[in-house]
Design a protein around this nucleic acid. Structure first.
Lengths: 220, 220, 220, 220
DNA sequence: GATGAATGAGTCTTCATTCAT
DNA sequence: TATGAATGAAGACTCATTCAT
């Protein structure tokens, strides 16, 4: 049935690949990589088993290609070219980044589940391939954001940018992992509307009391 | 060959079960639940395949029983009864907590891998059970630590303790997950000796300059 | 792309068939019948898989039809109408026949390999079909050659022509099979230049010492 | 059902291997390597498919191991230590050798079919291995036979023994191959009872008329 | 006629589980 | 209780053949 129009050559092929990968992602998410069968995926893609092999060489290749097709949107930069001019602006931006991150993880939770359970046991090559994409991508943007902020005196000059850019996402990760991926009852009743501001504030101002607000005489 | 003294009836049985579960945990960690075979486990336990079925009804039952035996030590408190008296002391303690956390994850990485690979097979109830242990346990201790610190004026009074107690572990989680569990090349060359102080400092003092630096009408 | 001039109706079809059969023969020779895929053959013929089925009903049909096109030259008579007048002449002719046979087997070795490996598993009808062609054809010529030789007193009158006509080719067969078809290191270092004369001499004069060479009052 | 007694450890295993290899040889002979299925072989061995893999790692391994178990008897010498004292004795012996050869090929025809069908899949090394056994073995014995005969003046002194020892088996090969292995209707109606004497006579006396018949005190 | 994507039956192989000893 | 051979269901993957375009 899925005999698709001819003219669109090349596009058809791309369409099929997407169709298959989307099905694979759904099935992997539901059953886990090892328990998902090609037949499951074929059915989900409304294709025959054989057809899948016209587009991908193996089941593992399906897994490897899922992010390329499906998760790409996951990596559309959260922090565009935004450069913070004031601290308030920085806070604004970071709140936005965090909300975006949460929304995205929520949206892609099923896939992330597969990802987590399958990855540790796949070939090192496959693992590397994935990891290049995932947290790195997000972090690189944040690094630039921090660097710009430092240049403008908004952030401490002695921050290790490389590390700090991963600390903020990390803060949310524990919540996201447990609630969205592992599907455990909410840890914190208030939800992300409380968590995110708290995280951003901690990230910007720390846990210790500001000295009378940044106003008067130095650190003393 | 594993013919163990008979007298200890009941205990022998318990010994065998432990012997098998420990082997299973090792194998699951190395290969993932679905890829681990009963033969693998039997060999690791220095028993025959058939014998395993004298103690457990199925492969899945092995999985369910693992934590009871092996994971308990993972939850020995990181933050004992420590109560911080000064900021410096607090910093000291947090550094210790973080180092402990890293060490423990490194030690239990294999088990965490089992946990992840097993996810698709765990019932929601079992998942809950695990998660109650894992980050919750650690967090509860930190909550008390923060509350005491607030009472002593070391920490901001407006901190949401419940959340903040999870933000610090979270900060490290991203590094731990990628490096220890997913086994990807180190993100940050310097290793945890750089990461942990950076995280603690950020947690305590935030990313913005302390007072008097930010001098000139910061936000203004 | 293989759109060939139309006018030659019927001939075009024949061209295509030859094109396909030649490709099939090459592929069969390289991979063996069962391991050769239609895709292999299609590629070798620079056609699509589907097109092959416009000319042949099945893969097996390809095999059956190969000799008709390709092997025919294998059967161009080795022994033309030659009639031996003297023993010396007969020897001359037989040497020529043997050299021709060797050359041909060497040329067609790849095909013979397919033939040998595929044949035992084909339908009896197909097998008969092949066998009519192969050794029979060659033998019939030799039979006439022998009969003429006997009539002229060159060969023993009590020879069973039918059998003897197959004994000479047989002599070479062992060498050809092992060296050309099975590709084993040469049995006899000297090569066919030693083997052929030896075979012909044995065929003509046998292994026992001639009594004073054929000198005296012949058989008469 | 094939649960065999325990005590014979090691022997049981060997028994099973033989049982499987014999079944495999039969099936390969009937269907060819590629067309034989593991299920066929399992059924022929009265075992389940899975059991086969307890003894051999793959289908190909079955092929490689067949000769070791089954073909050995094929190579029990045809020409014992026999040394011909007179021409008549030599003829006697050669007739015996030929009959033995035919009988053996007939007996092992199924295996030879396996061998042929498997050819494309054998590594050059394996092919060599086989071929060392097959015609070489038989030929070596004949070589000695001929040498002894020459020393006794029974055979021509100018015979190339190495070659001649392969010409006699070769003579029969064409018949054997076509009739026993390729299973084509008999070429020569009379069967081997005519063919063998004809071949031996041709080998000994050649196709040309004897001068005065071998009169002069043959061995004498 | 030519194409090549779609199909699905058929294969090898793995592995949890059973059970005779 | 321990063993490990036997089992057979299940799954990844191949490929001859069909057929819409």
């Amino acid at each position: 049935m899925p005999r698709i129009a001819r003219n669109v050559r090349g596009t058809l092929s791309e369409t099929r690949r997407t169709q298959i990968l989307e099905a694979a992602a759904r099935v992997f998410a539901r059953r886990g990589f090892d328990r998902a069968t090609i037949q499951d995926i074929a059915r989900a893609a409304k294709l025959s088993e054989g057809s899948i092999y016209n587009y991908f060489r193996s089941k593992e290749e399906l897994l490897v290609h899922i992010p390329q097709h499906l998760v790409r949107p996951l990596f559309i930069p959260l922090v565009e070219g935004d450069v913070p001019e004031t601290l308030g602006e920085a806070e604004e931006i970071l709140l936005g980044v965090c909300h975006g991150m949460v929304a995205r993880v929520q949206e892609y939770a099923p896939f992330l589940k597969v990802f987590l359970s399958a990855l540790p046991h796949l070939s090192p090559a496959t693992r590397e391939h994935y990891m290049q994409l995932l947290p790195t991508y997000a972090a690189e943007r944040l690094e630039r954001f921090l660097r710009e902020g430092i240049r403008r005196g908004i952030f401490r000059a002695d921050i290790n940018v490389e590390i700090a850019a991963r600390l903020l996402p990390g803060m949310l990760l524990l919540f996201l992992m447990t609630q969205e991926v592992l599907l455990v009852h909410p840890i914190v009743a208030q939800g992300y509307d409380s968590i995110i501001p708290e995280a951003v504030r901690l990230f910007l101002y720390g846990a210790t009391p500001r000295v009378l607000t940044p106003r008067p005489s130095a650190t003393s």
